[in-house]
Design a binder for these strands. Sequence first.
DNA 1: AAAGATTGAGTTGTCAATCTTC
DNA 2: GAAGATTGACAACTCAATCTTT
Lengths: 150, 150
Amino acid sequence: VSKRVADGGLEAWRSFLQAHAAVISNIERDLDEHGLVPLIWYDVLVAIQGAPGHRIRMSALADHLVLTRSGATRLIDKLETAKLVLRETADDDRRGAFATLTRAGRDALRRAWPIYARGINERFLAHLSQREVEMMASAFSRIRQASQSS
Amino acid sequence: VSKRVADGGLEAWRSFLQAHAAVISNIERDLDEHGLVPLIWYDVLVAIQGAPGHRIRMSALADHLVLTRSGATRLIDKLETAKLVLRETADDDRRGAFATLTRAGRDALRRAWPIYARGINERFLAHLSQREVEMMASAFSRIRQASQSS
DNA sequence: AAAGATTGAGTTGTCAATCTTC
DNA sequence: GAAGATTGACAACTCAATCTTT
């Protein structure tokens, strides 16, 4: 149909999708086999850890993880049941809730990182040259930025 | 931890994940707004269309789409309810079932493609140079291949 | 009334068990 | 008994409606 897709672009797109699916499911399996938290939980823990004051609003979490609001609520419910996070109500605005890490949450994060990092390295980065890594970082941030608007 | 992730690799990984999530959800929205089939349905239709004889085994479909067997069954159930596909039992091996396209299925495929192609172009390829497109096609096929084994 | 978050109802996807055919 | 596929029970996710605080 369009010129770009015909021009080898479709192949890039397809391999992009398939590579993503394959790498993610492999890393997911790595984590599971080591008795560690699933990838989404890990993302939650990282987001909390990385937020100012080591706590994050539910809605900010939803944005960060490309989830719906209710999706974030459900997710934090489970992490809270697993004693990895805790909800705190904000002092100044009592509508809001913050998610914070428990000791166990910080531990889970620390334990998962080596395996996750190894997965990223071996299943993704190891197959790329330094130039490709740099190119992807720049290309994908461009795409991500453009995706925000529309 | 490892050298690669520290060396800018982590940024490439993160932007890869976020770009994927953003682009997919935008294309999904495009299709929905035009009253077209969701992306997974589209993948099913394409897989059937592209298979020899325009029909595919349930298990082959599951492999192709990175789904479980039962996932494939459920999915085809819905497409069949929507009258887009039909199940045929194989003559030679009556354990197996083939999914085939109906007339409406072929139509749905035809109607969805322009919008999908536009999404791929505008939301993905438009942000990449020709060199980047080529690089990604080669890099991601490498990754995908390596992912098969483990 | 609007922002922040949660809940209820429904949909989609997965695992283990089952059924049929080889 | 094993391969191909389906079903039942259950977990994950989404949308619309709701509740609370501003």
